[in-house]
Design a protein around this nucleic acid. Sequence first.
RNA 1: GCGCCCGUAGCUCAGUUGGAUAGAGCACGAGCCUUCUAAGCUUGGGGUCACAGGUUCGAAUCCUGUCGGGCGCGCCA
Length: 575
Amino acid sequence: MTLYARFAAHLDAILDALEAEGQLPGGLDRKAVAVEPPRDASHGDLATNAAMVLAKRAGTNPRALAGLIAPKLEALDEVSGVEVAGPGFINIRLVPEIWQEELRTILSEGEDYGRSQLGAGTRVNVEYVSANPTGPMHMGHCRGAVVGDALASLLEHAGYAVTREYYVNDAGGQVDVLARSAWLRYREALGETIEIPEGLYPGDYLVPVGQAFAAEFGDRYVAAPEEEWLALFRTRTVAAMLDMIRADLALLGIHHDVFASEAEVQGSGAADRVLETLREKGLIYQGVLEAPKGETSEDWEPVELTLFRSTRFGDDQDRPMKKSSGSWTYFGADAAYHLQKADAADQLINIWGADHAGTVKRVQAAVTALTDGRVDLDVKLVQMVRLFRAGEPIKMSKRAGNFVTLADVVREVGKDVVRFMMLTRRADAPLDFDFAKVVEASKDNPVFYVQYAHARVRSLHRRAAEAGVDLTGTPDLSLLDDEELALVKLAAQFPRVVESAAQAHEPHRIAFYLSDLAAALHAQWNKGNDDPAKRFLLVQNEKLTRARLELASAIGQIVRNGLAIMGVAAAEEMQ
RNA sequence: GCGCCCGUAGCUCAGUUGGAUAGAGCACGAGCCUUCUAAGCUUGGGGUCACAGGUUCGAAUCCUGUCGGGCGCGCCA
């Protein structure tokens, strides 16, 4: 039980007592009552809004009600002071022993500190990356990959049962294009001089695929009509691309539990069943959509399509499930795919590029319709990464094939830097990534600053060992002063940060929190420059050193736990 | 034309799901630091939270409208 939960319980008991005494009417809704650390540390350790929330319904005013609650809080052993402030906040100060105890808890729970049962085993499916299997991963995919993976890990820490999933778009026209591109490389491998026409994939990552085909098939398909080789080449090439993508993802430490195939969804009859289910619910009809507004396209012709009434669920227009050719639209298969996921989960989360924002509502509509509202789908939209090299933007052109691959970036700056940087902005805000800045050893670089904090703790312990500090016996944490306990208070917020980040589906909050914590540690450390008595390592005062080593260990532990959620390894020392 | 996302310090961005005097880093100003514990430290100025209404004890946060930016807008994926 966290400190905050414990005080929420204390407060609940106090409110019960006030009811019993007849000072407060019974049955008040306490849902909005919160016990939280105040923003401003000068307001104390904990604050509650109880008096403000309940006053009106209790027929009194906030400050009067606060005056009833405060003395009962003050009577608690753990509380050193209570004051009513502002419009009716009740600020609580805790005795130092509480924070000494919390420090011990951090150290004893170790890597489990910050884990929570918030999710209570709720099954969450996080679908992320899902890049088309037509080439290597590039930086455009990278951010979604990291955000999705960190979110999955965050949810696990918060007690959810998480499935990491990748949807393979192996059914559309572009995988045919891929197969044709590979076929050209196959002919090339057999000695032909080829030219890659506009519209096919020019990347030389298909060269080895063509060579493998040449080795396996000889010249069997060189002169054969497309029907004879297309399906074969498609399957094989997609498999090769997926191997490549998996290898790229592994460079970032990302491993999915499930790779779901769009072609399989279509071939299994799942899409047909979904269509029938929706039809039974009266959500399918044959109809003609209106021409798009705004830009007039000349080739638009009214065509009757099989439409899903997504407008019933807030979409702007109904959406086609099937093409006029009779094959499934991407959405048609996607609806079936989402039902497949929903069958094994209580919540769905998709990580998508922001350019897919327009398709969110139709898929949410399908999930709501197909699960009768049982399953919630949250779509996190991830904005672009703008690449720079020492301030100069790097231009990428997909058509020319000169995009920056994920593997290149990881090779240059390392997995940990990439992962951390991808989480230094809210997902839906654009992010600048400068190759020079992200490896800079300075305070301006959050990766460095956080890693440095951890390395500093490690270094401190190495120095302490070298100095022969006696580490036996129980450290006396009562030697820590208010400044030092302030560090513990910040560290103690970690479990709350994990829970709120998990609930908001926002892993970047961990990165921001760690930056704050690192800054606080560095600030405390720097005090030792002006005042040697404040240094962590004081050979002439072993007892105090011992207590401070415990403090440093605890901060290091929190940094490590936070980085673990982000999938970043903590540095033992800086190079 | 419509929908979604966004608009917070000169710049880049946070803001604990509606809390108190809106924060951090850069940049700018002023001191300190010639090594004590590894990449400097301390401190100051800087704001109509795009704008206008509304909801309530209380709004950067929720609702409505306006302005501005990004993305998208029949069968692509």
